[in-house]
Design a protein around this nucleic acid. Structure first.
Lengths: 247, 247
DNA sequence: CGTCGTGTTGAGGCTATTCAAAGTATGTGG
DNA sequence: CCACATACTTTGAATAGCCTCAACACGACG
């Protein structure tokens, strides 16, 4: 009925990589109304406390979710790359407990809650894909908790770089040993619970040890093995098990 | 068909508080095979790396999930009270990225993955309840991240106490202004990314300011308002919005 | 009675912070 | 093409928060 545009194709690709979808499922997804929007770097998409009526789907660029503390601090709780649905949970939340913003220049598409909710109700496979997507998210949160709670600055940076690289490589968004990660050192600090000054010194150490090369927005990882060891990174938490008893 | 035992009733109560269930849904839940087990304090239930074939449901006592770092550190990533399904996500994970253990003496029930998966497939309302349960979990993770990343020791302790108290009060497990929270100071440190020594001093401060009273396993909160302010705690992230377009 | 787990206290040290300033792009308007 | 503004990185110095190590107190328990 509806020819899938590039955006629809990307969404279908993403969800079908999480849970197996049938023709009927992908057809339904292809018919979703999408409203695309371009964003400047730093622009907010949804604010803490909002009750959005749409879900945001990342087409291009880097997006983050963050929480403001009353002392004026910022805690970035996740980074989102093309294919992600940063506020998938807003389907169920009365008020967002966090804001969503574009880190770099970005392009996103908005999907009305109603439409997505409707699909999730009528197409169980789609609901399962969204649910399972949330499960991966939770695994990432747990690893971040382990970083902020029990890893030192060098390990935190190394772990984060490994995580983002792995997720990008998975979707074909990395180019060999390097990838675009256009964050400032201050944003890195806000993600890892450190000051920008300390991030700067930690990056210098990592560079001196040839564990990373950071050129503008491009990060190069000479040896993923070495960096993984430095950040005690084990990628298994990023992958789901194949569905049993379904398909 | 099957008369719901106390355990089944508790599970049904919990899930129906998250998403509306119909008679058919609750009947199906009442028929779930449950294997109960008693645990000593400190006993592990599932280990990091395991591939459990059952989900664990908390009937009584305090349970936690934790991650071990290679340096020997422990990061507790969540506490679980009666009614919780600590390893609900194991339905989708090939290998657990964390361990689960009993903090206090506890009683849990195990539900085979197969049976729960089957119910989720056949009864969409049950799948939605489980999914939404995962969404709350994620909100709690985000708040923990904000604590570990951007709040000081006193705020972290205050926030955690408020969170656990609120969750318990919600389920009728708190008694007025006090509740059972049988954690050691060392475990508190492992949850909040602090040393037990520093937890000890922080608790002394909070006691001196009459923000908490800690008597053995029982915590009393003289003024929830004051403690919430000290921990910049806002309970709204613990609650879901009512489902629209479904019932 | 000794042992173990837990809470408490002190001293010293390290990690990371804050404040401050200077250096380096990059862009903008005249 | 220069003057200027803005954003980000880098460096230094002083300080604070939290950690580690160590010791001791106390109750529970075999």
């Amino acid at each position: 009925m509806n020819t899938a545009s590039g955006e629809h194709a990307r969404l279908i690709l993403k969800l079908s990589s999480i849970a197996p979808l049938l023709q009927a499922d992908t057809d339904a997804l292809a018919g979703l109304p999408l409203r695309t929007r371009s964003l400047r770097a730093g622009e907010d998409i949804v604010l803490q406390g909002d009750s959005p009526t749409e879900c945001c789907f990342v087409i291009d660029g880097l997006i983050c979710r963050y929480i403001l503390t009353s002392g004026g601090g910022t805690q970035i709780v996740s980074f989102h790359i093309p294919g992600d649905l940063p506020d998938r949970d807003s389907l169920h939340l009365p008020h967002l407990d966090h804001s969503i913003a574009a880190i770099s220049q970005a392009r996103v598409a908005f999907i009305p809650h109603e439409a997505l909710q409707d699909l999730a109700t009528r197409f169980p496979n789609i609901a399962v894909a969204l649910w399972r997507d949330a499960v991966i998210d939770a695994g990432v949160f747990r690893q971040w908790l382990a970083s902020l709670g029990r890893r030192n600055a060098k390990q935190r940076v190394a772990h984060l770089i490994c995580e983002v690289f792995s997720r990008m490589a998975d979707l074909g968004l990395a180019d060999g040993d390097h990838f675009r990660f256009p964050v400032t050192q201050s944003q890195l600090g806000d993600a890892l619970g450190l000051s920008s000054v300390h991030i700067n010194r930690t990056l210098q150490e990592l560079r001196a040890e040839k564990l990373i090369v950071w050129n503008g927005p491009v990060v190069t990882i000479p040896s993923l093995e070495d960096l993984s060891e430095a950040g005690e990174f084990d990628p298994s938490y990023l992958r789901l098990k194949p569905l049993s008893g379904q398909q």
